[in-house]
Write a protein that binds this DNA or RNA. Structure first.
Lengths: 333, 333
DNA sequence: CTGTTAGCGCTTTCAA
DNA sequence: TTGAAAGCGCTAACAG
């Protein structure tokens, strides 16, 4: 690995002034072709790379967008990240990612680190802990000139652009779909009952089911959901399960298989999970596809637009999810 | 969101000099307690946050470690990332992540962006394209004072610390294990034949199998592996499959199920896949666990040590993988 | 066409 | 105990 070299050193080597070198490298019209060539050669030879910190300090811009995510195990967030990247890749912005692992403290640290001159804009989906604590001051303290966009797990009290998923409607539609298929006794499983999105989905279920029966909710950690679901399937004549996240989906799936009610279509199951996982389960899992990539792309585009036009009105975009029918909602003989 | 404020402005407000404010905020002994208090109050009130770019420029350090990964869909890399984070989280370093999506161009861009004054150190696993092109100049051009650590997909010609997985040995052991179980005719499936790690694993297979029969290799994209494997299972009496990556594992799994040879144990299958996926397949998949998290932790620790002692000799650490026996290597009636 | 200079926000001698 | 000034690497008026 070579040694890094500064403009000043380069200038000394070439026996010209720093500004000449700077201008030459920036292809300024006020520099002769011959010096430009000389400077460029020397720069290449010595592997000159402008110092980012200096550039940032000078310009007040960083040309970097920060992305703060609670997790990348979550397939939806992973896809959203790809969507964001695919858009940013076509710009001259860099992207830096920070994962909070659902920790509020890590989120605060990340946001502070990023917004103190590391990024021009921030795309964030908050951590579970942040939503539980309802503690958003770290977002409200972000300086004006750094633009923030929240997606998926958003918070109304924070004034910024937002990209959401139609959580309430998606589950409402799922319930209706099940009812249409003659499944009236439906149980809900969730490990994300502390998340805004989980609560919206649950509300969709409650509203959708209210004409049939009292809501049957199994909410808690994955193990808990599995145990409870197992018991429920033994004790009651459940006709369908809606699971609100991958963990609840898999827990429900295991419980269903254990009771042999999934293979024969006695109990239908609609869950949330990635494509690969859903298709490799036996029977394959019907899911609600939230179009993570589209959510990511939309978020990135929206932030980019705001970066261009800081004065624009705050926007909010909802991305619709769609039902992907697979074997767990298929009537068998 | 508030307005950001600089040291200078704060000084003006307090009618003291910039240096006094700076010292007070850094808790210097040469400032009186009373001014310290006043300054700190004002700083809090106006939500003062030191400008990172200025700090970096001044100190020549960034307190940030860059992590460049080819993908996060890959469960091993995702786990490695968590390992890295878990170590860095306990230091005062920040971490910024860049995903290259297996593209050489993106990798070059990322590395350049990061190493031009954004980070003090870099942890990288190179992209597939980079390994195919054998193009590593972007790594060799990184300035001396930025320390690099390669993990998993490493390149000998780059002088830096390295953390590897025992790819060759792991497969060699897997072959032996299968032979011990009486499975002699073994086929190898891989979608990563262009990666160094894939080639090492393949060599382990070839060396392990050489006393039994000519190697039977199915190498190519996921679809191709599935089709070929399907045909092979119909035409020959295969006793076991070793799949070198998640895609090949799933393709082999599908082909095996289609031929009904996995459920009855007629064909054994050892693959690479995450825990959740492996356990939810039916039958569940025996895998080689590469201990991604440990790889990540080891990498981060090693880099941190080098950051402390830049002069230390270059190190190379190998993390052993272990076989996780599940149903696809279980003898049935 | 080239050079001098000031300044981005901050820390840190050195002087007062 | 406080302040003035230099300088980190770079750009961009402004002079020459």
């Amino acid at each position: 690995m070579k040694k890094s070299i500064t403009l000043k050193e380069l200038a000394k080597l070439l026996k010209v002034s720093v500004s000449t070198v700077s201008k030459a490298l920036n292809d300024s019209h006020e520099i002769s072709e011959s010096t430009k060539r000389k400077v460029e050669e020397a720069a290449k030879l010595h592997n000159y790379k402008p110092n980012r910190a200096a550039l940032n300090l000078k310009s007040g811009k960083t040309n970097t967008i920060g992305v703060v995510l609670p997790s990348i195990k979550n397939f939806f967030l992973a896809r959203a990240l790809r969507g964001i990247e695919s858009v940013i890749a076509n710009t001259d912005y860099n992207i830096i990612i920070s994962i909070t692992n659902e920790s509020h403290e890590k989120e605060v640290k990340s946001v502070e680190a990023l917004t103190n001159g590391m990024v021009d804009g921030l795309i964030i989906s908050v951590s579970e802990e942040t939503q539980v604590l309802q503690e958003f001051s770290h977002l409200n303290e972000i300086p004006d000139d750094i633009h923030v966009l929240m997606f998926d797990r958003v918070e109304n009290s924070v004034q910024c652009d937002k990209v959401l998923v139609d959580d309430y409607d998606a589950i409402l539609k799922a319930v209706r779909d099940l009812k249409f298929k003659g499944r009236n006794k439906i149980v809900l499983a969730s490990t994300i009952n502390k998340l805004s999105v989980g609560q919206l989905r649950t509300r969709g279920y409650i509203d959708g089911i209210k004409d049939q029966h009292e809501p049957i909710l199994i909410e808690g950690p994955e193990d808990f959901v599995e145990v409870k679901m197992n018991r429920l399937l033994q004790e009651q004549e459940i006709e369908a399960i809606i699971a609100l996240d991958e963990e609840a989906s898999l827990a429900s799936f295991r419980a269903g298989k254990k009771n042999g009610v999934l293979e024969n279509g006695k109990v239908f199951l609609i869950g949330y999970a990635g494509k690969t996982m859903s298709e490799h389960l036996t029977p394959s899992l019907t899911t609600i596809d939230q179009h993570g990539k589209k959510v990511g792309r939309t978020s990135a585009k929206l932030l980019l637009e705001r970066l261009k036009k800081p004065q624009r009105d705050i926007q909010q975009i909802v991305v619709d999810s769609t039902l992907r029918e697979r074997d767990t909602t298929l009537k068998r003989s």
